[in-house]
């Protein structure tokens, strides 16, 4: 399934921590305006895939094409500057900084081909943040932090966002808000790559899915194709 207009195209991606190989020949694509899910169990290599794409792992090889440009050799900040946003699994809020200051760190100039976000627009999607704008990031609930970390990434006006396990550890009500937020972002024209363990969540937001296990891609297809393959689910995702 090769899209000529793929937003992100990863091929032959290998990554290792020390001498332990984590990713082997990972290949995946995210189409423009599409929400793609990366499914896998704990430790399957989802977060490592994201970190390798962003150049946060020193020991890696392979090709990362973003917007038709090879960014494999670029520094992390340079990749982010090209409009590739990243929301880490552990949120990594700057706990000493206020909500507003956290957002300020993420701010980048508007760019063509990507939605432009302002504080006001973000506060519309995440109304909680408006009330908390002067509060230190460290003194927020997990759900609020998750919203903040997404908003912070959006401040960079990305055209594609890597969203690492957005539903992890959140209360059901917050998960619903998260689903809405992802749909909002998609409506704005953003492309998303969302890693998930929660199949229900993935079904509600994703157009296509990849399944990763032990650092290798085991399945690629639309969500409908994935649902037609219970063997894939049982082999690589069931606990």
């Amino acid at each position: 399934m090769t899209h000529a207009d793929a937003k992100l195209r990863v091929s032959g991606l290998n990554a290792a921590y020390g001498q332990a190989l984590i990713l082997t020949d990972v290949a995946l694509e995210v189409g423009a305006g599409e929400v793609t899910a990366l499914l896998g169990r704990n430790g399957a290599g989802k977060s490592t895939t994201f970190r390798a794409i962003l150049g946060l792992i020193a020991n890696r090889s392979g090709k990362v094409i973003f917007n038709g440009e090879d960014v494999s050799a670029l520094a992390t900040y340079d990749i982010a500057r090209r409009g590739l946003g990243y929301v880490p699994e552990d949120r990594r809020i700057f706990s000493d900084l206020t909500v507003e200051e956290n957002l300020l760190v993420g701010r980048q100039a508007p760019r063509a081909g990507a939605p432009t976000w302002t504080l006001e627009r973000l506060f519309k999607i995440f109304p909680n943040l408006r009330e908390l704008r002067g509060r230190p990031g460290g003194r927020m609930s997990g759900g609020e932090q998750q919203m903040l970390t997404i908003a912070r990434t959006l401040m960079g006006n990305p055209s594609l966002v890597l969203l690492d396990e957005p539903s992890e550890g959140l209360a059901p009500k917050i998960v619903e808000q998260m689903i809405e937020a992802i749909r909002d972002m998609k409506r704005e024209g953003l492309s998303l790559l969302v890693s998930e363990q929660n199949l229900h969540f993935a079904r509600l937001v994703a157009d296509r899915a990849y399944v990763i296990e032990k650092g290798r891609i085991r399945f690629a297809g639309t969500m409908a194709e994935f649902d037609a393959r219970p063997d894939v689910r049982d082999a690589y995702l069931a606990l």
Partner: peptide, 10 residues
């Protein structure tokens, strides 16, 4: 690391 991932040239 997070600051870099947000596009800041450290």
């Amino acid at each position: 690391e997070m600051v870099a991932a947000l596009g800041v040239n450290q």
